[in-house]
Nucleic acid binder design. Structure first.
Lengths: 222, 222, 222, 222
DNA sequence: TATGAATGAGAGTTCATTCAT
DNA sequence: GATGAATGAACTCTCATTCAT
């Protein structure tokens, strides 16, 4: 698992995806994410990204090679960006419940710090991961990163005596991210029954049941 | 929401999608589901379905009109089939925990009675629902059906005194289906960290925490 | 060898090359031959043939599939046409020397009955045959057809006592066609040192030396 | 014709084709010949030569200018090399039949001293010569060189009384090279009916008939 | 002198769709 | 009602070439 974690992946990125490392290459990736979010990965053409970014089609191909390579690079870009964002947001926080709540907020993608179209990108990636091993590896690595973040947070809370002593950090992380996934999807539709606020409440409520010896202290809502 | 529930949708089906309702048409839809499951909706061409089903391309168009219409018809076909299957499976069961566990098993798609590629189809549908209102309506209707099934089951258990009295059936249904979605996706990849067995256990474990006054009675595993 | 002779190849043609047998398909082949003769096989694009024949590019692909398939079909078309032409021209002739001279004239492609660009097409075919086994099979089959024609003619002349008794028909056929190839190429350039008339004379002169017990009777020039 | 013979051509080479005449340039040309032999001239890209030779694409262009210029330079390189080789091999030989047989062996390209892909390169050149006057000039000059070699050899044999007195050296040279061309092509395919050994025998056998007052002396095989 | 970055032109191929039967 | 023939639109990809260093 550590082999596929965020840090270990970076060299692979440079090796496999980036044929060229032109200065504008990174700039373009953000545009790719936007286009994929708006149109969907399958409907994303080189021409769309070219128009959105102002970079000619042939230059995009020069940067990324295949269309698929470009899309993978974009997903990885977004995934690493999101993981870095949640890590940065957690750093200054000390209280386990607060940390957990914040991590959930980022996982759900419903905070201002989250990149646009996070869930859209994730759905696209999941879809392709079902059929393409390269995509699967990307998605699993991203999932592993998130699981690690949550599991660590839970473990700290347990160690600090703030969470139920018999809680299994890995299992709780799986459950939290599973629900996060299901809710994030629903909210991305959007499903009128699942507002951002309610989504967060549902998730934290579940965690309170899993981790709290008593009810969650006070109201652990964001 | 009730307008778009399973029963209410059927006439709409006949009206909007189906120019033809012969038996051949239903046969073809099953093939469409298989092809979509194997190749993905965006990669599904008339030619693929033609080859899989033995029905010529022009005939497929004659039956369904647009490619998109054909795909929607296929998703609806699969969704209604799955909902009917879980309803049929629940009918003979009386014990609330048993009913809930069975419903979860169907929601996760990990039982023999589940149609192949259920999760694959659902991911495809979700993806398009993010951008196409017609697909969104389909997906929301399907989600509503499932929520109703779970909520009813929970409500019965509460009424029967088997579940915690203060449980909110709708909220629990949302939570259960959210986690089901997240886990189903992970398992569909497949994510080696999420086996079918573990998926079911995680889901039922959570429900036990949410609904159980005490721990779940006995071992609510499948 | 008989397996790959002209007659045995025809069914394979229908099977392998002709995806469709539209009425215009055969018409198009003549245009392909002209374009290949003018531009060369490697420089022949679908667009060129489309312009020359008036048939849209996509229709050409519908007829022939790959560009390569189209070119092979054209070569085979021309090859079979040429073989048929020489056979037809030989049929009414009785005198061995006359038959041989006529066969040489057709082999050199310098008579009115020969299709235009015969040598150009042959050079293209040879070139590809050096690297592509499919083309090689075509070229070898064509060569075998011609060898058979010449060898039969020689054998008849030997049997009739008009050719030297110890002449080996197969060897003479090889020699005649080898020189025919070399001269045909030179003339196709065109090489000013090799005019059509001189080419034919050189070839028949050699055959006279190989086959004549005395010098060739009279002047066996065309 | 003498203007374009081997010796006269060299300055033209330096003038027209070579911007650079460093040793690197010659090294690259050898690689070009190999690539053209393997892939064919039309399929030869700057990128292929760059990979084979290790010289960057832009440097190749800097050396040779156009792709076509590079290919012509390569053909001329190979042609001059082959002509020089046969001349060197003939130098120490005195017997006319031996000289002729050796010249044939080099013409056929079937001796160890012959450069690889000689016939492949020649076919490529012939093909382009049919349409491009620049290529035609190259090919005709090469043909003239060879004809001169053979014709001289024949003339010497006639003068020495070893060949038939009425033999026309130029005509025999044309016939010899014509057959050499046809056979070389067939062998380059390769045509299983034309082995290297048989090819040489066929050619020398014909020359024996053309030049021998009696049958060829002894066995003029290689 | 030599080379990497960037880009436009051009080609093959796929595929939905139209039309005649 | 069903189906094969035919075709235009759109997209990816290759590759020579230009430019700046």
């Amino acid at each position: 698992m550590s082999d596929t974690s965020a840090s270990a992946r970076i060299p692979a990125t440079a090796r496999r995806v980036g044929r060229r490392s032109g200065r504008k290459r990174a700039d373009v990736l953000a545009h790719v994410c936007l286009v994929v979010g708006e149109r969907g990965a399958d409907a994303t053409r080189f021409a769309d990204v070219a128009e959105a970014s102002g970079v000619p089609v042939s230059t995009l191909q020069y940067y990324f090679g295949t269309l698929d390579d470009m899309l993978i690079a974009a997903f990885r870009h977004a995934a690493l960006r999101d993981v870095a964002a949640v890590r940065a947001a957690l750093a200054p926080l000390a209280d386990p419940w607060e940390r957990l709540s914040t991590a959930c907020a980022f996982a759900l993608g419903f905070c201002e710090a989250a990149a646009p179209y996070s869930w859209h990108l994730r759905v696209e990636a999941w879809r392709w991961a079902q059929r393409d091993p390269v995509w699967r590896a990307e998605v699993l690595a991203d999932a592993a990163d998130w699981r690690k973040i949550i599991a660590e947070t839970v473990a700290e809370g347990v160690a600090a005596g703030r969470f139920r002593a018999d809680a299994d950090p890995d299992q709780v992380a799986l459950q939290a991210l599973a629900m996060s996934g299901g809710i994030g999807l629903a909210a991305a539709l959007p499903d009128p029954a699942v507002t951002a606020e309610r989504a967060h409440r549902l998730l934290v409520d579940m965690l309170a049941r899993l981790l709290g010896p008593t009810r969650a202290p006070a109201e652990p809502d964001s």
